[in-house]
Computed example of a mutant assay.
Amino acid sequence: MVRAVLIGLGLAAAAVAVVHTAVAGYVARRLVAPRAPKVFAPVTIVGDTVSVPTTVESLEPGTYGLRLDDGTHVMVGEVVRRDGDRVVRSVLARPDDLRDGVSIAAWTTQNIDAPEDVGPTRHVSVPLRRGGTADAWEIGDPAAADGRWTIHVHGLRSSRHGALRSAPATTDSGWMSLVVSYAGDDECAPADSLPSSLGTREWRDVDDAIAYAIGRGAREIVLVAWSMGGTIAMLAVERSTHRAAVTGLVLIAPALDWTRVVENAVTRARLPRSIASSSMRVLRSRIGARALGLIESVDARALTWVGEGRPGPRLPTLIVHARTDPVVPFSGSVAYVARHPDAELVAFDATGHCNEANQEPERFRAAIAGFLGRLPGR
């Protein structure tokens, strides 16, 4: 009887272990998977208002966008009223030829339609060491910038449009703005939509963008990085052969400690904390990386700049981060600033992830403009 009980317990433990591993693999896959297709739904535009489905995102305060299924962009403002399962918001900008009525659109935080809305724009291609090119926007007047460039790096499962939100602050400050794409991001063709490597592969493309800017006359370069773009920026500064040209960092809700990010995601999903460490083991194993479609394994635990083992760059750094960010914990930015005297943190009360520019645009732009104005220059 005892033997039967022990066998039963052993089988139960094995079953639990299998389930635990499966859940960890699922979490790892969700972490690095390409972005799912945008969700399009009917919206009703009437004059200067639009009715959209009620979601957590569409109820957020601030300025956002609707991307219609034909590519048209509509800028929307604050909530006007709730109407059952719909929310009515103000329309701030709409194309002249857009008629009232029902359209199909996707909600987006991308509240700037095109780089031309920021300043004079060149659509350029950045040569990549891995072959081919990456599309980028070059915004501003190179002659007036006098060698001062900013490179804007978007986050995980996003695109250049997401990073475009920081370009007005840098362009209006007289700096060139290069808004870049990179391996596996939202702009890649479906065949190239590889899983993210959390920055360990993507940083090379940003390094190539640094080389491109230097070739265009850049003498001072500030990396302006969003979310996972913060990881990419830190790796580029650590490893780039052009790192001497980087004179500052602006980091928006930056992922500076992936252990915190993963543990936060697991906690919010009400899963056991042990799932976080197991999912990171999946990522750094060869078998796990192969199963996830990764080109190379990823040691997420090593992607941290808030502890003692991996010092951050000695560069003037501005961090903009909301205290209640649900995706990248604010505590990581606090810990980073505590260890780096060259870094300053501007805390926001924005809701959601990377919504600082959407909800407090004037303060957001002022923080970046002030930081650029305080850089010593060359």
Rank of each mutant, 00 (worst) to 15 (best):
G352K: 11
P272S: 12
V76K: 02
V262E: 07
A189R: 15
V334E: 15
E296S: 14
S177N: 05
G132R: 13
G119K: 04
R314E: 14
L223V: 02
T133K: 11
W226P: 00
G230D: 08
F40C: 02
I232G: 06
L345M: 06
R268S: 14
W149G: 00
Q110K: 12
R378H: 11
E263I: 01
G84I: 10
P53L: 06
A265E: 12
L223M: 05
D97Y: 06
R219V: 11
F330G: 03
T317R: 12
F348T: 00
L294I: 10
H123F: 13
V23P: 05
V19W: 04
R286K: 09
G377M: 06
T133R: 10
H340T: 08
T241N: 12
T267S: 07
D208P: 13
R216V: 03
M228R: 06
S181H: 00
A106D: 11
T108D: 03
A144H: 07
A357H: 06
E238H: 12
G377K: 02
P168Y: 04
R273S: 15
I139Y: 02
E356Q: 10
A253F: 02
L194R: 10
V328L: 03
I214Y: 02
R286S: 14
I275F: 02
H321V: 04
E60M: 12
R3G: 08
R219G: 11
R216H: 15
V126K: 04
T55W: 13
A335P: 09
R86P: 01
P195C: 05
S158R: 14
D192I: 09
G217L: 06
D205Q: 03
